[in-house]
Amino acid sequence: MAALKARYDHLLGTERPEIVEIVSWAAGNGDRSENGDYLYGRKRMREIDRELAHLSRRMKALRVVDPGEQLDTARVFFGATVELADEDDKRKIVTIVGDDEQDAGKGRIGWNSPMAKALRGASVGDLRVVRLPSGTKEWEVLEISYE
């Protein structure tokens, strides 16, 4: 939520006013059909307005969840950090986060990802099959924690 709000504030308070100033200046220079500053500025302003609308919709629909307040810590829900082992005993630690926060490189998987969907409601010792484009893989839940 904080990252979305910061991006929204930056676009609305910094980038958009700068573009409006450039477009206004460029419009005063005369012929707009061949004025690169004017054409680019208008295009960029439309992009910013679309992103502002998208961010606004996301922030309205968003609900902030504190994983530390999870009552049932023995099962996998939103905000859980889960240690898994596959058939070859390769271990992996993932944290289930919102889709906007996912970063596979840091082990943060989105709530609607195939892995998170398979893990929802799992307890320690459960085996879960994850269907991925590369095929199916079975994972065992070794540990669940909430920070």
Rank of each mutant, 00 (worst) to 15 (best):
V82C: 01
N112Y: 08
E87W: 01
G79E: 10
T81V: 09
S123M: 11
V124R: 11
T81N: 05
T81D: 02
K106G: 01
N112L: 09
G107T: 12
N112K: 14
K92V: 14
I96H: 03
V97A: 02
V76L: 04
F78C: 00
G110H: 07
W111N: 11
N112G: 06
D100L: 14
S123A: 15
I93H: 02
A85W: 00
T95G: 03
V94G: 02
D100P: 00
R120V: 01
R120E: 05
I96P: 09
K92F: 09
A104W: 08
E87G: 02
I96R: 03
R108L: 15
I109P: 05
L84C: 04
D86T: 10
R75P: 01
R75T: 15
I93T: 15
G121P: 05
G79Y: 04
L84Y: 10
A80P: 12
A118Q: 03
V82R: 10
Q102F: 13
D99K: 07
S113P: 12
I93D: 00
V97M: 05
E83C: 00
I109V: 15
S123D: 03
D86E: 03
G98C: 03
W111S: 03
R91A: 00
D89R: 13
S123L: 06
G98Q: 01
R75G: 00
M115W: 03
L119F: 07
E101D: 12
A80W: 11
L84V: 11
L84R: 02
K117R: 15
G105S: 11
R75S: 14
D89L: 11
K90M: 06
V124Q: 04
G105D: 11
T73I: 13
G79V: 09
R108W: 13
G79M: 07
G79N: 07
A122L: 10
A74L: 08
L84H: 09
P114I: 04
M115P: 06
D89T: 14
A116T: 07
G121R: 02
V82M: 05
A116Y: 03
G125A: 10
E101L: 13
D89G: 01
G125S: 08
D89C: 05
F77R: 10
M115D: 00
D88V: 12
A80L: 06
I96D: 02
D88F: 10
A118D: 01
A80R: 09
G110D: 04
P114Y: 01
L84K: 06
W111K: 13
D86M: 05
D99I: 12
L119A: 01
L119Y: 02
L84E: 01
R108M: 14
T73N: 06
R91P: 13
D103K: 13
A74P: 00
D89I: 06
T95W: 02
Q102H: 11
A74E: 14
E83R: 15
A104V: 15
D100F: 12
V76F: 04
A74W: 11
W111P: 02
M115L: 15
V82P: 03
K106S: 13
G98R: 10
R75V: 15
G121F: 09
S123Y: 15
F78A: 04
E83I: 14
G125F: 14
V94A: 02
A85L: 02
A118R: 05
K117T: 10
A85H: 01
G105H: 05
I96V: 15
